[in-house]
């Protein structure tokens, strides 16, 4: 993969607003953002209702995903362009999710909703009417999704990249600071994981930094090219953005996103946890 294959600019989107082969999809943490105005022609996917099983903590299964995309008029041959607020956190999560189910042509709008707004580009409240399709998904590509046992087994052996803010990593906060902090799980991080906050991937306007800057960022924390990699955060959306940077922009091999992330790991009984700003030893004790 490369920047050209996985990222489009706001200008590109503006030039393709009437391209029938391009489907714009907004996915936001704040699921009401779309209703306050969105890019013309864009449809909305709600990550809490559309993209999650409503009983178990898991994604839609293949048939549910097929039904969702079919009903929204997304076809297998469409170029899907995802964007959203919060510097594309949930759009990147949806990107990874589309890849998980094998959609070939999916891209992120560089800078997402914020860049679009800061450029004072047009938003509309008109909801498009798209004809239904018959979407066919692939089986989940488990090569990009990590589960809890793999994370525990990866301690001390894989690149574990925790992309939360430094205060969450150290255990001083339990959630991103725009959310209430009261949580049931323990604070801290997976021992031996390095902290590369997702925000270091992005400029202030939400666009991604250059490949050279990104390469340097991971080299500086000792990213080992010979090892497999797992990215994690709190619920797997910010780490989707880092997964995107590592695998799609920088072309690194064998990168997985752990969607269980800290809300799962920090609730497991008996697993090691490291506190403070350092990665810590494999058993959770400080160096």
């Amino acid at each position: 993969m490369s920047r050209e294959n996985s990222l489009v600019s706001a200008q590109w989107v503006e030039e393709h607003l009437d391209d029938q082969n391009v489907v714009l999809i907004e996915v936001d943490e704040d699921t009401s953002s779309y209703d306050k105005g969105h890019i013309r022609g864009a449809i909305k996917l709600d990550w809490t209702t559309d993209l999650q099983d409503q009983v178990r903590r898991d994604f839609l299964n293949k048939e549910q995903f097929e039904a969702l995309l079919s009903s929204h008029g997304v076809g297998n041959d469409h170029t899907v362009v995802l964007y959203g607020g919060n510097n594309n956190w949930f759009a990147a999560y949806a990107y990874w999710y589309f890849k998980l189910y094998g959609h070939q042509d999916v891209k992120l709008l560089d800078g997402g909703r914020k860049k679009w707004e800061l450029d004072s580009r047009e938003l509309t409240d008109e909801v498009p009417d798209r004809a239904a399709t018959t979407y066919v998904a692939q089986e989940q590509d488990r090569s990009i999704r990590a589960f809890r046992d793999e994370v525990v087994a990866a301690i001390g052996s894989h690149n574990l990249v925790d992309v939360r803010s430094p205060d969450e990593y150290a255990g001083r906060l339990l959630a991103p600071a725009h959310l209430p902090q009261e949580q049931s799980q323990r604070a801290g991080h997976v021992p031996t994981s390095v902290n590369v906050p997702w925000s270091k991937n992005a400029n202030d306007d939400g666009t991604f930094k250059s490949d050279e800057e990104l390469q340097k960022l991971y080299a500086e924390v000792g990213f080992d090219e010979s090892k497999d990699t797992i990215a994690l955060c709190r619920i797997g959306e910010r780490s989707s953005l880092t997964w995107f940077v590592l695998q799609e922009l920088l072309g690194k091999k064998n990168v997985k996103n752990y969607d269980g992330s800290w809300t799962e790991y920090g609730s497991l009984v008996g697993v090691p946890i490291a506190l403070g700003d350092e990665p810590g030893q494999a058993d959770g004790k400080s160096a």
């Binding site: 803010s165 205060d167 001083r172 906060l173 959630a175 991103p176 600071a177 725009h178």
Partner: peptide, 18 residues
């Protein structure tokens, strides 16, 4: 960076820090 929010129509914002 720790968090970011857009302001509401009334210009308001809120964080839960430490």
């Amino acid at each position: 960076f720790t968090a970011e929010v857009p302001t509401s129509a009334t210009g308001h914002f809120r964080f839960f820090a430490g």
